[in-house]
Design a protein around this nucleic acid. Structure first.
Lengths: 199, 199
DNA sequence: GGCAACATATGATTTTAATCATATTTCATT
DNA sequence: AATGAAATATGATTAAAATCATATGTTGCC
């Protein structure tokens, strides 16, 4: 259920919250009580700037965690609002901190998890920097990012699903990718070979 | 010089490398020797997929770190090539690991650093998801991302510098931002007030 | 089994930022 | 002070993806 290393926590370190659309998991200024994991639904984190502009910090969906940084501050510095009926688990801050201090394995896995996330996000940002939709989709598939639906991939890599479908069609037509059916694609050749770079 | 918590490391845990354009800091398959920090220049990390497509994982510039994940594997899984004459510092893997095990403060700061980075990258990705260049620039400035040049900001938020300058002009003309000169902008009002959302 | 929701798929049109071009200003360096 | 590089700034044109529209296929569910 919970991702590493939080699966190591005792059950009583967790609280399950059921949120209706519009409910808050926490508000800016609240004392930090822990880290959250989204079981289902979606939670949007937003911060208000002094001049009153709402800045979205994260859109956490099922499987995502949020408010990790709360481990290092006394108060939440943003609002967490359910944008759909959601189920979230709150992982107690004190339980995590204690465990982190006393259990080297837990501590190392936590660090590892964060390092992996950093890596993943950086790669995603690098991918976003690729101008051409065609090439972006190719690289996304080549690096194994097509796990769920094409729609999900599209949103992940910053394209509309239509642009994504078209790119996939082009790439398969030209032989850069092969389709194994049911939205399953595999990399076939390098871009050079298929004249991806042609402008 | 070095970012937290690596500033805590003894000097002999670090090695300074001078790389000419094209030199490798490491290659895919090399035994991992540590984490790197870019003092000047730029390092590009790329991985080859089975079919031979080059996937860029990160473009590390001055002040950036790379290969953090090497702490958790025996071999580097990508190439690190200098794309400009560069100066990098290698932080010994063993020194970091030992310190992490023996010094709770170091360990906590490392975790904190990673958590902060995760937060930052997530916010950046969320920002990239904003379609309108105008709104994207506004939110970027409102959340304090305009530190260096406009050109840098543009690249960070995934726009061309031209698009960025135009958005800044529009926003100041309409009063959403105020310019304090020398590329210094401040947020003035919420977007609603300035009819940002008008389509 | 049938309905609703969602994914897949593609065509037509519009919008918008990228690209190309160019000028001025600022800044570091010889 | 002179040179050159980079940042700032805008205009004109183009290219490309977003949007809008629509159809079929798939899947979970009462």
């Amino acid at each position: 259920m919970l991702p590493e290393p939080f699966d190591l926590l005792k059950e009583d370190a967790n609280t399950i919250l059921i949120l209706a659309k519009g409910d808050h998991a926490f508000r800016q200024g609240d004392k930090t009580r822990g880290v959250f994991f989204v079981v289902s639904g979606a939670i949007c984190l937003t911060r208000m700037t002094e001049a009153g502009a709402a800045v979205t910090l994260q859109n956490a969906k099922a499987g995502d965690m949020f408010a990790e940084a709360s481990l290092y501050s006394d108060h939440y510095h943003c609002d967490a609002v359910a944008v759909a009926p959601s189920q979230v688990i709150r992982l107690s801050k004190s339980a995590i901190q204690t465990r982190q201090r006393e259990d080297a394995v837990f501590s190392e896995r936590l660090t590892k998890r964060l390092a992996t996330q950093v890596q993943n996000y950086r790669q995603l940002l690098t991918l976003h920097a690729v101008k051409s939709a065609r090439e972006r989709v190719y690289l996304a598939v080549a690096s194994g990012r097509l796990r769920g639906s094409v729609t999900q991939l599209a949103s992940e890599i910053g394209l509309t699903k239509e642009a994504c479908y078209r790119a996939l069609k082009d790439l398969t037509d030209q032989g850069a990718l092969s389709k194994s059916g049911r939205g399953e694609y595999a990399q076939r050749k390098s871009l050079q070979e298929t004249r991806m770079g042609t402008k």
